[in-house]
Computed example of a mutant assay.
Amino acid sequence: MAKVLVLNASYEPINITSWRRAIVLLIKGKAEQVEHNGKVIYAEFPLPTVIRLRHYVRVPYKEIPLTRRNILHRDSHSCQYCGYIGEDLTLDHVLPRSRGGMDTWENIVTACVRCNVKKGSRTPSEAHMHLRHPPRKPYSSLYFEVTKHLKSGLHDEWQKYVIGL
């Protein structure tokens, strides 16, 4: 069913929750509705798509794990050298492991098999291959969830609350 973006009192996105949990927060007076999609639950009670907490909540920093799935998502499931989108994607170290390249967000990109083989154990500049987007660590773990919903086109109203997309 519908998901709801939860904003802190400072309008900073902090979570994505179910519409039922959002309704409970609204009824209890802990949150206020910021955006809705026109659908209604009860007469005169629209279904929220974005709510804002009335009081500021401290959210602890959460480290984003460096996993294949997260790297593929960060790179939009496309080769960072040629732009290929498909099933045959691998992970490539920008500075090869054989030269001391580490497993970090800034050193691993998604590459198709063809580009990965072509690059070999060279740097992109040595192989005359240019990265489409420089690899970087994502802003937050919420970033991944929000981008999935934005790419689906279901929650375009969330765009104005998310920085860096």
Rank of each mutant, 00 (worst) to 15 (best):
R97Y: 11
V59E: 05
S76W: 05
K148F: 02
G101M: 01
R132L: 15
S125R: 12
P13H: 03
E32Q: 14
P13Y: 01
N70S: 08
V50A: 02
E35P: 04
P60H: 08
A111M: 03
S140N: 14
V4A: 05
Y161R: 01
T17L: 07
A43I: 01
L72E: 05
F45Q: 05
N107L: 09
E35C: 00
C79M: 04
T67K: 06
R68T: 08
H133T: 12
Y81E: 02
V24M: 13
G120P: 11
H128A: 12
K137P: 07
E87G: 02
I51M: 02
I23K: 14
S78W: 00
H155F: 15
T90E: 13
V94M: 07
S18M: 01
L150D: 13
L53N: 02
K28C: 03
V34Q: 02
A127D: 03
C115P: 07
S152H: 09
M129D: 00
H36W: 09
L150Y: 13
K137G: 12
P96W: 07
C112H: 01
D103K: 12
S141L: 13
L5D: 02
I163D: 12
H36M: 00
Y56V: 01
K3R: 13
H73C: 02
E32D: 13
M129V: 03
V34G: 04
V40R: 12
S121E: 15
S98E: 15
I41G: 03
L26K: 08
T104E: 14
I85H: 13
I16R: 03
P124L: 00
K137A: 15
S10D: 15
K118H: 09
C79T: 06
M129C: 06
T104Y: 01
K39G: 05
P13E: 00
H130T: 14
R69C: 01
Y11W: 13
S140H: 14
K160V: 10
E145A: 10
F45T: 12
R52V: 01
Y61H: 08
H149G: 00
S18Q: 07
R20D: 10
Y161Q: 02
I14W: 07
M1K: 12
T67R: 10
S18T: 14
W105S: 07
S18A: 03
